[in-house]
Measured scan of single mutants.
Amino acid sequence: TQTTHELTIPNNLIGCIIGRQGANINEIRQMSGAQIKIANPVEGSSGRQVTITGSAASISLAQYLINARLSSE
């Protein structure tokens, strides 16, 4: 079954999640098997909405990979 998880990434950290020309986010997508959508910046908001869709296992793996990127910054 597909589930969806949403999280907010601070604007100053979204770059390390996306990577150069989307390299990091594509790697996270491939490794986790989850669909990951990053919302466009919202004016006045300090973060970007990230939506992860997939199986429970792929979502938790995607979250783990995202958190690993954030903590390495």
Rank of each mutant, 00 (worst) to 15 (best):
N11W: 04
A57I: 08
T51K: 12
V42F: 05
G22V: 02
Q49A: 12
A39L: 11
I38V: 09
P41G: 09
I17D: 03
Q30P: 01
A68Y: 03
G33H: 02
S58K: 05
I9L: 10
N40D: 13
A34T: 13
G15P: 10
L7V: 11
T1R: 09
R20W: 07
G44R: 06
G54F: 03
E6Y: 15
Q63F: 07
Q35S: 12
N67V: 03
E6L: 10
L65T: 04
N12F: 04
C16E: 11
T3W: 08
Q2N: 15
A68W: 03
I25W: 02
V50N: 01
S32E: 01
A23G: 10
N24K: 14
L61T: 15
A57C: 11
Q21D: 08
A39G: 13
Q35V: 08
S60M: 09
T4H: 06
E27T: 09
E27Y: 08
P41A: 13
G22A: 06
N24P: 09
I25S: 02
N40S: 12
R29W: 00
E73C: 08
I59P: 01
V42C: 09
E43I: 12
N40E: 12
R29A: 10
A62W: 00
G33V: 00
N11L: 03
R48M: 06
T1I: 14
G47C: 09
Y64V: 15
S72I: 04
E43G: 08
M31R: 14
I17Y: 02
S32T: 07
Q35D: 12
S71H: 04
G15V: 03
I9S: 00
L13A: 10
A39K: 10
R48G: 02
Q49C: 12
R20K: 13
Y64W: 07
N12W: 05
I52F: 02
N26R: 13
N67H: 08
I25C: 00
Y64T: 15
K37A: 09
Q2H: 13
I36A: 00
L13P: 00
L70K: 04
S60P: 02
T8M: 13
P41Y: 11
L7C: 07
T51M: 10
A23T: 14
R29K: 07
A56D: 11
I14D: 01
I25N: 00
N26H: 07
Q49Y: 03
T1H: 08
L65I: 03
H5F: 05
S32G: 01
S72M: 10
N24E: 12
E43S: 11
I59G: 02
T1S: 12
I25R: 01
R20V: 11
G22C: 09
A39F: 04
E6A: 12
T51V: 11
A39N: 14
I14Q: 02
R48H: 08
I14S: 04
S71T: 09
Q35I: 09
S55Q: 05
S71K: 11
I28E: 00
G54T: 01
L70S: 02
N24H: 10
A56Y: 06
A34G: 02
T53W: 06
I52N: 01
S60R: 12
I52T: 02
A39E: 08
E73A: 14
N24G: 11
E43W: 07
G19A: 03
N12Y: 11
A68E: 15
T8A: 08
V50Q: 00
A68M: 11
R48Q: 06
E43Y: 10
I52C: 00
T51P: 02
N26V: 05
I59F: 00
E73G: 11
I38D: 01
G33A: 04
I18G: 03
N67E: 09
L61W: 06
K37Q: 14
I25A: 03
S72V: 10
E6T: 15
T8P: 04
S55F: 03
S58I: 00
I9G: 01
N12R: 13
A62R: 02
I66P: 04
I36L: 04
M31C: 13
G19P: 04
V50D: 01
T51A: 07
P41D: 09
E6P: 00
R69N: 09
Q35W: 06
I59R: 05
S46Q: 10
T4E: 09
N40M: 10
E43N: 11
I52G: 00
I36Q: 01
I52S: 03
L13I: 10
S58T: 06
A68N: 15
Q30V: 06
Y64N: 15
R20Q: 12
